[in-house]
Design a protein around this nucleic acid. Structure first.
Length: 383
DNA sequence: GCATGATCATGC
DNA sequence: GCATGATCATGC
């Protein structure tokens, strides 16, 4: 039952914060109630406990300020009555079904927050180690809650503030754009199909985009979807990251995948669970895959949505991150993780050139670096 | 052929 | 002027 029963209204307070560029964003995801795996397995979306409780929200946002934990000291500066649009509900329903399918298949222990777009199944555990039962498997699963992801909440904040209408545009114009039974991701892939087999050059000419542009994939993606503005609203709200992968003639990835450069001093202060790296890799990815042909050109081979399993993220990637953090704290870069260490991810330079450096906690300077996903991992787990 | 180091092209 | 995504270059 919602908080205000007769009004059918659920109260949600959540923190917002200012970025360095003054933009106001949600500080974190907004939780919408624990998942009961047993109940969810038997529910239908239209009559789900989730919808009953969360269809109509009173959103109250307060400014997060470090150190202020007393509710009476919170400064609330946004208040809004919120109903989800038909288009958003369609994606949320697909998310919900995806989570329910894992539960029904006895795979509640394999749920990842990155599997879904707007609604996430976020782990909720005081110690990090608690487990709960699931109906169709004896393997215990992490307790999870349904949440609105942070990126989704950012757009909500922008909408409340009246911003953002200018530079985002929906890829799906209305729910009628879907074919029957189709999910958002299937819709996107269907839109790409007519372009499979076309060369980079041809796509560049068709859409008047220089193929040497580093944001080529992102631009082509927008053009194929008929989005003229800078950003695809659904991709923004779902926090989807677009990445290009080039395959050689045999179908092996030609390069590792890079991420934004790390800030040494900031990383040294982070914990894994809310680290910048974990946040980046827990997202859903849209992969645009080109393959080299005998004549040397690259053809659009396929596109797919992908997310990293949490067990990989919180095991191997975490180890790489911990090891890197140690190197940074010690100020000794002689033992950075290499791709030959076979740990899913590795660390390599990523700056303007080798003189482009960042400062370490001990005051020393080192060439800027970033985390990369290994080619072997891309080949074995992403394609 | 692969790992690793280095740097380019563009956008903001 | 720098961040970012991507690709080039070199050496084993």
């Amino acid at each position: 039952m919602p908080d205000f029963q007769e009004a059918g209204l659920e109260l949600k307070t959540f923190p917002i914060k200012h970025l360095k560029d003054k933009r106001l964003v949600a500080k974190e995801r907004v939780s919408l109630g624990m998942i009961d795996y047993g109940t969810m397995a038997t529910e239908e979306w239209a009559h789900s406990s989730f919808l009953k409780k969360n269809s109509f929200l009173l959103l109250l946002a307060y400014l997060y300020q470090k150190g202020i934990t007393d509710y009476f000291d919170y400064i609330f500066n946004l208040a809004e009555l919120w109903r989800f649009s038909e288009e958003d509900l369609k994606i949320m329903k697909d998310d919900w079904l995806k989570i329910r399918e894992k539960v029904k298949a006895g795979k509640a222990h394999e749920i990842s927050e990155g599997d879904t777009l707007y609604l996430g199944a976020v782990t909720k555990s005081a110690t990090g180690n608690s487990r709960t039962s699931q109906p169709f498997n004896r393997i215990p699963a992490k307790p999870r809650a349904l949440c609105l992801k942070q990126q989704y909440m950012n757009l909500v904040v922008d909408k409340i503030l009246g911003l953002r209408k200018l530079d985002v545009e929906n890829a799906v114009k209305s729910v009628e754009s879907y074919e029957k039974g189709e999910t958002f991701e299937e819709f996107i892939i269907r839109k790409f199909k007519p372009y499979f087999g076309m060369s980079l050059e041809k796509l560049g000419t068709m859409f008047a985009v220089g193929s040497s542009a580093k944001n080529f994939a992102a631009t082509i993606t927008r053009r194929i979807l008929g989005v003229r503005k800078n950003k695809i609203e659904e991709f923004e709200k779902a926090g989807i990251t677009t990445k290009t992968i080039r395959l050689d003639i045999h179908g092996n990835p030609e390069e590792a995948i890079s991420f934004p450069r790390m800030h040494f001093k900031e990383l040294a202060l982070e914990d894994w669970d809310d680290s910048t790296l974990r946040e980046m890799l827990a997202k859903r990815f849209f992969l645009v895959i080109y393959q080299k042909q005998k004549n040397g050109t690259y053809k659009l081979a396929k596109v797919k949505f992908w997310s990293m399993p949490e067990e990989v993220l919180d095991d191997k990637v975490r180890k790489v991150w911990e090891s890197t953090k140690k190197s940074i704290v010690k100020g000794d870069f002689s033992k950075l993780v290499k791709s030959s260490d076979d740990m899913v991810s590795h660390v390599r330079p990523h700056g303007r050139n080798s003189k482009d450096k960042d400062i370490l906690p001990n005051g020393k300077r080192e060439t800027k670096r970033c985390f990369w996903l290994n080619r072997d991992f891309i080949r074995d787990s992403m394609l």
